Simulated scan of single mutants.
Amino acid sequence: MVRRMFAVLAAAALAFAIVPRAEAAQGEVYVALGDSAASGPLVPDQVLPDLGCWRSDHNYAHLTAQAIGAATFRDVTCSGADTTDMYQPQRTDLGTLPPQLDALSQDTTLVTVQIGANDVGLTGFIEDCLNLLPPPVGDACNDDYVVNGQDSWRVATDALRPRLTALAGDIHARAPQARIFVVGYATYAPPNGCWPRVPIIRSDANYIRATLQYFNRMLAEQAASAGVGFIDLQTPSTGHDPCTGSGTRWIEPYIPASPAAPFHPNARGMRNFATVVTAAVSGV
């Protein structure tokens, strides 16, 4: 998955709240955890020393840290990360990184975590549904995920529930003073899609939309179960999906028109997500 992400990013580069009410205190010690949806691959500027993580200094966590005046900020978000990488070193094409939970400390006061998409193969899932030809020549992908009458993507999503609950508990154990917020994923497809602008046919676009809505509901439910906050990015990003114009969209399509990885937030998206996240962590 990491090599695949590296290849996709390189190609793109060449192509060019359920939220607990709490007031953000001055002097926050803020730690950002997560995957490429949080790290901001190809969004200027990519930061050292962990270039293999494709992490932007203008991702929503950096912008939120500035907005709340965090006294200490540690961003360990990394492209390709899944829940395993919270606990174990993550290998990237440009080096190996420590477990993300190692960034937590007893004095951490704020944590955002956006994770889980790679556990269920979100990137590969969307890529599998790309279809340059419409039916009947092009085949729909959604039926590939139905096995023995069960939607395998939803089965994988439900299987992730206990891991996310355990992760919230482990974050709290390492950072007992911290307010913890699970961050959801954005809107990747409007109803019926927009083939051929984004080469995903209508039935597959609706399938992607429905399964991502289910995934975000799962994240919200597990956050509530664990007693932590949930920040909804799906709702505010409606109308800013990859099918919208380059001056409107927050998520880039398969062939990006601005510096960002395919089907990942661009700089505009990160700015708007930072507004949402800042409001949530500030209790606004």
Rank of each mutant, 00 (worst) to 15 (best):
R74H: 13
D75S: 00
D75T: 11
T77E: 09
C78T: 03
C78R: 02
C78E: 02
S79C: 12
S79V: 01
S79G: 15
A81K: 05
D82Y: 09
T83G: 11
T83M: 15
T84G: 14
T84A: 15
T84W: 11
D85H: 15
D85A: 12
M86G: 08
M86Q: 10
Y87L: 13
Y87I: 10
Q88F: 15
Q88R: 11
P89L: 14
P89H: 06
Q90F: 13
Q90N: 00
Q90T: 06
R91G: 13
T92M: 02
T92Y: 01
D93M: 14
D93C: 15
L94N: 07
L94G: 10
T96C: 12
L97E: 05
P98T: 03
P99K: 01
Q100M: 08
L101C: 07
D102S: 15
A103R: 10
A103G: 08
L104M: 03
L104P: 07
L104D: 12
L104G: 03
S105T: 08
S105V: 10
Q106Y: 12
Q106K: 08
Q106D: 13
D107A: 12
D107K: 13
T108S: 09
T108F: 10
T109I: 00
L110G: 07
L110N: 06
L110T: 11
L110Q: 09
V111F: 04
V111K: 05
V113C: 03
Q114G: 15
Q114V: 12
Q114R: 13
Q114L: 14
Q114S: 14
I115V: 05
I115F: 14
I115P: 01
A117V: 12
A117K: 04
A117N: 09
A117I: 09
A117C: 06
A117F: 00
A117S: 05
D119K: 07
D119I: 03
V120R: 00
V120E: 08
G121C: 00
G121K: 04
L122D: 13
L122Y: 13
L122N: 09
T123H: 06
T123M: 12
G124N: 01
G124A: 00
G124T: 02
F125H: 09
F125K: 10
I126P: 01
I126G: 02
D128T: 08
D128N: 10
L130I: 07
N131F: 07
L132G: 07
L132H: 12
L132P: 04
L133I: 15
P134H: 08
P134L: 12
P134T: 07
P134Y: 14
P134N: 04
P134V: 10
P135W: 00
P136G: 05
P136N: 08
P136Y: 08
V137Q: 00
V137S: 00
G138W: 02
D139N: 11
D139T: 14
D139E: 11
D139S: 12
A140F: 03
A140P: 12
A140T: 11
C141R: 05
N142P: 01
N142E: 13
N142Y: 14
D143Y: 14
D143A: 08
D144V: 04
D144T: 06
Y145G: 15
Y145E: 09
V146E: 10
V146D: 04
V147A: 07
N148Q: 08
G149E: 15
G149I: 09
G149S: 07
Q150I: 06
D151M: 13
S152H: 02
S152K: 06
S152R: 06
S152M: 15
